[in-house]
Write a protein that binds this DNA or RNA. Structure first.
Lengths: 159, 159
DNA sequence: CCCTATCGTTGGGCTTTCCAACGATCCAGT
DNA sequence: ACTGGATCGTTGGAAAGCCCAACGATAGGG
């Protein structure tokens, strides 16, 4: 049998795979007391890591553009992160409209924690592949993702 | 410096990429009159193609299990597809609880249409890679997806 | 014949995502 | 110095997707 389960352009299938990963991550994270107590949502970790990996403390708009998150949604995510003590909002002295978002030591520690959880999820999803193939897949994915993070919206809001 | 733009387990980044693809597909599909008139939503096409590619006319439960879609959500998607004339719900004579969902000729034609749109989206997303790398990536993704379609829930509702 | 399980369906709740508008602040031109 | 337009963060609400609980209709086993 084997009736062509997925065809050439697996667009919606990949979308579904992404949703599955997000949900799996959310479920695993719900078991971590430190995350639940702080009210951390899945999106918080994307933001936290973007803040930590960026060279300089970015503004919220720069964060939103990089991650493709609407600035209005970023507010709530940063509120949670700041309440948890993982980031700090400081006024940019050069432009007092902006906040310079900086990660704290606790924030860096939290990143290590949740990356362990992410690794578990990745094992569940990519574990079906041989190690070499898995490495190849992850490398290619990172290339695609970083290419689109650099500011190229795919098909959406071209105002 | 070189602060690791994306780390080893790109879990949330892949989730975001999937969301971007879904949205891009939705936007492109909103420009197609035949799709808008029928009220087709992104999920409809996953279902339609699953019905068409399956060997025998599946039941709605089988469809939901295969695609990871809740049976309750499948109802609305099939309602739209049936109203558009792309599928037909026939009572399974052997078990009158079940519907045997069959694709129509119009449905097959619609699949060709929307797969062209999906190819456009795939070009936008994967076009940043060299053709050989893109082919490798798509092959590996298909392998991962099919492996999880065969009935292995990743992290969520494992009863 | 009865009791349990399954199928499709309905309804509701939760989360994420997107969009419009508003005060505060910066910048350019006069 | 003042003013008009643009940008930043924030608020509020709308829309869509996903998941769970419950219900009638039907099938199957004791």
């Amino acid at each position: 049998m084997e009736p062509q389960v997925t065809d050439a352009p697996p667009v919606l299938a990949l979308a579904r795979l992404g949703a599955v990963m997000r949900r799996a991550f959310s479920v695993r994270m719900a078991e971590e007391a430190w995350a639940v107590d702080a009210g951390l949502r899945p999106g918080c970790f994307s933001v936290l890591r973007a803040v930590a990996t960026g060279a300089t403390a970015p503004s919220q708009r720069a964060l939103g553009d990089q991650l493709g998150i609407d600035p209005s949604d970023l507010v709530g995510l940063l509120d949670v992160l700041e309440a948890a003590g993982y980031v700090e909002r400081r006024r940019d002295p050069a432009d007092r409209r902006r906040y310079a978002v900086e990660v704290t030591d606790d924030g860096r520690h939290a990143i290590e924690q949740f990356e362990g959880v992410a690794a578990t999820v990745a094992d569940d999803v990519f574990g079906v592949l041989a190690p070499a193939d898995r490495q190849t897949l992850e490398d290619l994915l990172v290339r695609v993702i970083t290419a689109h993070e650099d500011g190229a919206a795919v098909g959406g809001s071209s105002s």
